[in-house]
Amino acid sequence: MNNKEKPIGFFDSGVGGISVLKESLIVLPSEDFVYFGDSLNAPYGTKDVSEVKRLTFNAVDFLLSKGVKVVVIACNTATSAAIDALRKYYTGIPIIGIEPALKPAVEISRGKSIIIMATPMTLAEKKFSNLMEKYNKEVNIISLPCAGLVELIEDGIIEGHQVEEYLRGKLKDFMHLDVASIVLGCTHYPFIRNELIKIVGEKTTIIDGSVGTVNQLKRQLACNNLLNEKRTSGIVTIHNSSIDKKLLDLSYKLLKL
């Protein structure tokens, strides 16, 4: 197999990165993908940085054992904690991360507020602080840590009363503000987008980082002469660290939603 025909590796702390994988299937339909979700150790967002780094390095090693040509860290928390160290260590392979899509949110803010929903670790990390410093002079940016939301989604609870009550509780202090957009700073969160829209309405734009990440993936493949030029549709293989078959079933279900 030549390098172009090798699969693209995707990693997330659980099923969240499926939201980015879905976008990749649209933009790169000829590519094969290997996805690894570490649901056994989810959530990452409440762990310490050294533990997240260790788990992320283990995941990248797993993907490399599957012969991938590029690795996408489709997890905001893992990107915040480990992306710089990963790139220094794995010098022979492109590694793409994801970060909260603040730039497009600021561009459409028109002076209104922006809410960023993310895990506690993502919001606490230096990488996010640097991003905030870049934009918070232009617009009021509200950081909203959402501990517990990943666990709901990992349990397959992406709609209904439980999710709605969780989101209402988190957003109740900001409903009086004129909010231009909500940035989904965790790849799990796009799966509860519909419940979010029920609460904030259509006038608030919901933004996630999937499109920017997949565009960067395509650029990196092109720059490294790794784009698969076959005409047939690609194959997706999903692995999970948990032995609970329900998580694999959930992964494939979310991919088809």
Rank of each mutant, 00 (worst) to 15 (best):
L171H: 06
E165W: 02
S50A: 13
K88A: 14
S143P: 03
V34R: 06
I115H: 08
D84I: 09
S210F: 06
L248H: 01
N3P: 05
D244W: 13
Y252A: 09
L217W: 01
L250Q: 06
T91H: 04
V179C: 08
R219F: 07
E164D: 07
L149C: 11
G156V: 12
P104F: 05
R219W: 15
G16E: 04
A42D: 02
I157N: 13
V72G: 10
L123R: 08
G111Y: 11
L184A: 01
V68R: 05
P29K: 10
K137D: 07
K22Y: 07
L255Q: 07
Y189V: 03
L227P: 13
A85C: 02
V236K: 07
I26D: 12
K170E: 09
F57C: 01
K127C: 15
E154R: 09
I235F: 14
L64N: 06
G9I: 11
I93S: 08
S181N: 13
I83P: 11
I199M: 08
E107L: 14
D208E: 09
V106E: 11
L152P: 04
D249R: 08
D173H: 06
F62A: 04
S242E: 09
D178L: 11
A81L: 08
N140A: 10
Y35P: 09
K170R: 15
S210N: 13
N228W: 02
Y252V: 06
I197Q: 10
R110A: 03
V20E: 05
I114D: 00
K230A: 03
I114E: 00
E202Q: 14
D208Y: 04
I8H: 10
Y189L: 07
K245E: 15
S30I: 01
G148T: 13
P29M: 11
K126I: 00
G97F: 02
G169P: 05
I157R: 08
T79C: 05
E23M: 14
L226D: 00
M1I: 12
I207W: 03
L86D: 01
T187H: 12
K230N: 14
I93E: 00
